[in-house]
Design a protein around this nucleic acid. Sequence first.
RNA 1: CGAGGUGUAGCGCAGUUUGGUAGCGCGUUUGGUUCGGGACCAAAAGGUCGCAGGUUCAAAUCCUGUCACCUCGACCA
Length: 576
Amino acid sequence: MKLKNLVSKRYKETPADCVIASQALMMRGGYIKPVGNGIYTLFPATKRITSKIEKIIREEMDRIDGQELMFPVTMPASLWQESGRYESIGSELLRFTDRSGANMVLGMTHEEASVHFVRDVADSYTQYPFMIYQIQTKFRDEPRCRGGLIRVREFTMKDAYSFHTSQEDLERYYQVCYDAYNRIFARAGVGEVVAVASDSGMMGGKVSHEYMLLTPVGEDTIVLCHECDYRANMEAAPCIVGNVEAGEVADLAKVETPNVKTIEDLCAFLKVTAKQCCKAVVYQENLTDKYIVAFLRGDLDINETKLRNYVKAEIHPAEITAESGLCAGFIGPKGLPADVRVVYDSSLKGVNWFVTGANETDMHYTGFNIAREMGDVEYVDVAKAFDGGVCPVCGKPHIYTSRGIEVGNIFQLGTKYTESMGMTYVDQDGSLKHPIMGCYGIGVGRLAASVCEAHRDDYGPIWPISIAPWQVHLCSLRADNEEVAAMSQKIYDELTARGVEVIWDDRSVSAGVMFSDADLFGVPVRVVVSPKGLKNGTIEISARDKSMQEKKPVDEAVQFVYDYVVSELAKLDCRL
RNA sequence: CGAGGUGUAGCGCAGUUUGGUAGCGCGUUUGGUUCGGGACCAAAAGGUCGCAGGUUCAAAUCCUGUCACCUCGACCA
């Protein structure tokens, strides 16, 4: 492929509104163009990258006995009504009507479609287990898109669904997928992607992992341990405070705290630490508007996901009205309205002395002892894990947090969909049973963008050779020079004949333009043919990541490049 | 959905306060000189100033409405 014929354009200046580095480079390098909010055209170079990612995914899915198929993007609403998600999922699911007025949806995930398919064909235990997968367009009407391909509304995803006759078999296969995912990311050149325990969210099910690329620009917060390899999404991470500073037992006293509403003000006013405060966070159930007051230690933050899971309802931060009986800024456990649901965080357990609200304007209690004042209450973990917290695995207080981009996930779904959609098979003993499901996703475009985010310099992406749009970038400096033109053609022909992918730049432009464009292409191997080199009988060969730079005699150059490409590919378990 | 912001040539921007026939840089085309990290000279093409109303002799500029996009927040399998 000659670069001058490639349908693309590169820009010297960063387009407006780019927020993260990979997005800026992919816009400048002519990889993507926004069509609408969160909707992109992928240019030919990008499509070559995603196709290679897809090829790796296919190889690994097929290796664990996956069977590729294709579900539709558009589905009748009735399919989603069967599982109950037509009602339970919000406006993220794009709904529309067809010409006859029938309700339709655009697929954002395909559990329903997969159950719809297999319930007719997998009716005997002898057919299990099996896994089906597809690589296909998804549409999710995200409220807010971000960072180029990092968070979009329309995207390509590999989604897989496995079906089992026992929880044990699901767990066995889950581990197989876990390993396959690690191979996929390693082969795509981002071995730094790590699996973290996660919250299952709307997918249902219990055990799940997310594969995260750790980067400051990530949207998720990851909890890790310095001592051991514990890793979890903040949403799912337990908060363990460790040693409790119980404090002295003291009498309950009501004190005036005029206009002191925040923990910070309270600490300053009463000369106490945040740990000695019991703070209230107020939510409301989405459907009923019923108030939920969560109490936790003053230095901690609420983990909404854990709270949501505990109260088993969708919730949102409360609007505290005059009729609610709540006294914003002065809320405490004692004297709350009866219809308010109260949740005590584990961080409060065993502490004898708290400052907390008195449920009266400008009044707080000191010496508040939850066990004495409120009796035997249940403590649950609804706080966010924090730096220096206790690791739930090794027990050492070495928790820290980091940010990450979720590039894939795996879930043990259980029977949520097979039950709701009435899928059964006949077991060995003749009884009807619901298959147990797992599901496994990878966002292809997001992975490509994440690779760019992880592997780049100031001048452009540095694509791993396994997914690079081309393996070799051939630069003909002074292509008008007959010798240069002839040698370039020879190198291009020979490499291409041996299966190496070459992008060939034979434009009559200055070296600066040619090299800066090559940097933006991010192709791993660069071959430079120039009059200067040819005068010495050499060809320049270098790696985009600067790990290799050679001058080779003209008759050895092709073999050297070929060998180098093959060996670099082999390092990522890939072939020409 | 809440708050803020921006729409002017393919890209980046100025011009809007104070209304007067639309500009700069990059890119593109042609000719010439250059040639190892975004060269130079000369000429040229390219815009109903997001859209629709209104005010005015006159609107990119003022007013009203509307659409789109961006940022922060809410939200997020």
